[in-house]
Amino acid sequence: MTPEPDSPPRTITANVNLNLSGTPVEAKITVPVAPFPLPMLLPTFRSLAETIIEHAVEDTKSEGLTISCRSGCGACCRQLVPSSEVEARLIHDLVVDFPEPRRARVLSRFAEARRRLDEAGLLEMLLRPEAFSDDQLRPFALDYFKQGIPCPFLEDESCSIYEERPIACREYLVTSPAEHCAQPSPETVHCVKLAAKVSRAVNRIGQDPTSRFVRWVPLVLAFEWAEGHPHDLPPRPGPEWLREFFEHLTGSEIPAPAAADPPTERIELDAEGTARAPG
C-alpha cells in the first residue's frame, strides 16, 4: 500500500526478526498507527505463541519424543492457569454473550470453584496472585491441583472455548505419558520447553517494569475479577504496543522507529539471542 503524499498511512507494518535461544521467529505484523485498545492484538499474540510452540514441537520430535496431549485429556484443565488481565476481560465478555442456559451453567461452575477454593483455604491467596513469590507459587499450584477443581469451561474433558483459551493454556504441552498428568510431579511430568513465553510478555504489558511482581488473573476467578476491573489499559498506537510487548518477550530494549517525513509504513523489531528458555 502506498500512502497519499500529504496523508500519513493508516497502518504500519513491523518486520519482526527474533532469535530466541537459537529459535528464529519471523513475522510481519500490521497495526493501526492511531491509538487502539490492547485486545485487538490478542490474535497477533496468539499467532506468535503458536509460532514459538511449533518450533518447540519440531525440536521435540527431532529428539525422538512425542507430544502426549490429546483432545479429551483434561487433567491440565484442573491446574492453576495464569491468564493475563486482557484475557480475563475477554473471558468475562465471552461468558456474558453466551446464550442461556449455557451462561448460567458456566457461571454456576465459577461459583462452585470459588466455594471449593474458599473451603480449602486457598481463595485468599488467589485473590492477590501478584504477591506470590517464585518459591510459593509451585507448591501452591500443586495444592490447587489436588483439589481437582475443573476449569469452568471444561466439558466432556475438553475445552469448550478452545479458540479463545488463554495463551498459557496453549503453551502447556507434555511429552510424558498422559496418565502421569493426573498426579503431576517434576519427576513424572515433562513439559515441552519454549524459547520464550508469550503469555508472560502479555502479562507485563502496561505494568511497572521495575516491579518484581507481575499482575495476573487466575482463570478460575477471571469472571469476577473482570466484573471488578472493567476498564482496560488506555488505547495506544500500534508501534508502542508492539515495542513494549517485544521488549518483555526478549528481555532487551528495542528502540523506537525513527521519525520519517513522509511517515514510513514499516518498522523493524530485531533482537538476537536475548531470551532464555524458561526453567
Score class of each variant (00 low, 15 high):
L20W: 01
N19L: 13
A113K: 03
I52R: 00
L48S: 01
K28I: 07
G72R: 10
T188W: 06
P139S: 14
R266F: 06
D261H: 15
G121L: 03
V202S: 03
E119C: 00
G74W: 03
G238E: 00
G228D: 12
R138G: 06
A168V: 14
F223A: 00
I67V: 13
H190Y: 09
R200A: 10
I205N: 07
E4W: 02
S252V: 14
L65Q: 09
T66A: 15
N19R: 12
R89P: 03
T30N: 13
E244P: 13
F132H: 02
E272Q: 14
I12T: 07
I149Q: 00
C77L: 06
I67T: 04
P177Y: 03
L269D: 04
D156C: 07
W216S: 02
R89Y: 10
A111W: 03
P257Y: 09
D232V: 01
A201E: 01
P5W: 04
E130M: 11
V106R: 00
R109M: 01
S68I: 09
A34G: 10
T13D: 03
F140R: 08
T264D: 14
E50V: 13
E247M: 13
E155P: 00
T60R: 03
V217P: 05
S84V: 08
R170L: 11
F36T: 11
L42H: 06
T175P: 02
P152Y: 05
A277T: 08
R89L: 08
S133M: 11
K28P: 08
E112F: 00
L137P: 01
A258T: 14
I12A: 05
S176G: 12
L173F: 13
A113I: 07
P235D: 10
E119N: 08
A196W: 08
S7W: 06
Q207W: 05
A196S: 13
L107V: 14
I67D: 05
C73D: 06
P139T: 14
R243A: 05
F132K: 02
K28A: 15
